[in-house]
Amino acid sequence: MENTHSSDANHLSIKQYLKIGALLTIITIVELIASYVALGALLVPILLILSAIKFVIVVAYFMHLRFEHRLLSQIFTFAFVLALCILLALVALFIYDPSISNR
């Protein structure tokens, strides 16, 4: 059987991992600054986009999902999208009828 798992593979170099770490730190600092600056309606989308970028970077490069079998990406993406739908559905439900949470 063909060995397709990637335990022995070097996906990135040490320098590249450190660069990714620095990028994640910079994004976190930008998030922190954004939360203190009066950005009005732009704040929420900016924070969500920055958070999504960090999330994707860690999953793709630290968890090596970018280099793994497609099935693993599909399993994780399906569960993540489902969790996101649950979050959006529940929040929408309770915002639509706030009295539900006060019962």
């Binding site: 059987m1 798992h5 793994e68 693993l72 994780f76 569960a79 993540f80 489902l82 969790a83 649950i86």
Partner: peptide
């Protein structure tokens, strides 16, 4: 699938933890 069963199991666990 050609994927190590233990790795597959870990990803399924992480997917369930997402929920």
């Amino acid at each position: 699938t050609g994927i190590d069963s233990r790795k597959l199991l870990m990803w399924i666990f992480l997917a369930s933890d997402c929920l």
